[in-house]
């Protein structure tokens, strides 16, 4: 019997009042972005915003609660952006979007930071064991891809160092049920032959430090065959796959051809479009995938947006969360 779990990859839009309040408190320029040593009023604003997005997830009825990653001004590059041995360089385009982040230049050893753990603990205090906590981190390949290495000197060594760093972060997390590792770069800028085999090893380094079910979540399209095949070597509970992107047939092909994890996360709701899909549509998209991969009887299927949801206005973001929760709760008979 497959369990359907409604969740998200995190990185939510700030509530509108927090957009205004924080832009007033912090400023709007590059130098004003998050540094890791925020003033008390800024900390307070983020605390209130965090409480609101946690409530939103309970209101929606999601099965996993994320912290929301509201402090991640640089999106998934955040864990490096606040690191003491990283200098934030030029503003760069965030994937193929009209969004920008500070390119982190790693100039020293990636020592443990604890920044993400601290936010997760703060979130957990808000709801304790009322629902399972889901942690979110960038995957090691994507974080290395978004950064510039000026310390380690070699792509493989840098990837390994980023993985070790993320592992130490995960190790310090409070108790969590699920860990999403966000790996869009595996799609948009796949590893070359020299690095491809090192990617699953790097993911394992992070995953080993968490007791949770680890989901390697990919988006902005389908993985190429070679990257997918290598990724099958990773010892994780689930891959996250983008079923909204136009090349989703490729995703099905990969799963049929190379197999798939015991659990799977399906990006069925479009995190980059305000059109709110009905719960039935979301279920149909999930079943479209599951039925074509008949060899696998998934234990858990996570229903999620394909991407982070900070691209959306708040009202549509909330509506998508509600639709996902409803989709996971629909009687299977309705759509099969």
């Amino acid at each position: 019997m497959t369990e359907l779990v409604a969740t998200t990859p995190g990185l939510f839009p700030l509530p509108d009042w927090a957009k205004s309040e924080l832009s007033e408190l912090k400023g709007r320029q590059k130098v004003d972005l998050i540094s890791g040593d925020e003033s008390e009023p800024v900390v307070s604003a983020y605390e209130r915003a965090r409480a609101e997005v946690v409530d939103d997830q309970f209101d929606a009825g999601l099965d996993r609660i994320v912290e929301g990653q509201l402090r991640w001004d640089d999106m998934i590059a955040h864990p490096l952006a606040v690191h003491e041995n990283v200098e934030n360089g030029r503003i760069s385009r965030y994937y193929d979007n009209n969004n920008f982040y500070r390119n982190p230049r790693v100039v020293g050893e990636l020592t443990p930071s604890g920044d993400v753990a601290s936010d997760l603990s703060a979130a957990l205090e808000l709801f304790d064991d009322a629902a399972p906590l889901q942690a979110v981190l960038p995957g090691p390949y994507s974080l290395a891809d978004l950064a510039t290495d000026e310390h380690y000197g070699d792509d493989a060594e840098f990837l390994s160092a980023v993985a070790e760093f993320l592992g130490t972060e995960a190790e310090s997390f409070p108790s969590h049920e699920t860990l999403f590792l966000l790996e869009p770069s595996l799609v948009t800028n796949p590893p070359d032959d020299d690095l491809a085999a090192a990617v699953p090893e790097a993911i394992d380094v992070v995953a080993e430090e968490s007791d949770a079910d680890v989901v390697v979540h990919t988006y902005f399209g389908a993985l190429d065959e070679k990257t997918y095949a290598h990724l099958m070597d990773a010892d994780v509970a689930a891959f996250g796959l983008d079923l909204v992107a136009a090349d989703r047939e490729q995703t099905v092909y990969n799963a049929v051809e190379y197999g798939v994890t015991d659990d799977v996360a399906l990006g069925v709701a479009d995190g980059q479009n305000t059109l709110v899909e009905s719960a039935e549509t979301l279920r149909e998209r999930a079943e479209w995938f599951i039925e074509q991969v008949p060899a696998t009887d998934f234990e858990t299927v996570y229903l999620s947006t394909n991407t982070e949801t900070f691209y959306l206005p708040v009202n549509r973001h909330r509506a998508k969360l509600a639709a996902l929760a409803t989709a996971a709760g629909l009687d299977a008979e309705v759509t099969t």
């Binding site: 709007r28 590059k30 004003d32 972005l33 503003i91 691209y311």
Partner: peptide, 17 residues
């Protein structure tokens, strides 16, 4: 219009649908 979305940092755009 549904509300502002992030462009970068605390710069937002009322991206229409």
């Amino acid at each position: 219009f549904n509300g502002p979305v992030k462009v970068w940092g605390h710069n937002y755009f009322d991206k229409p649908s």
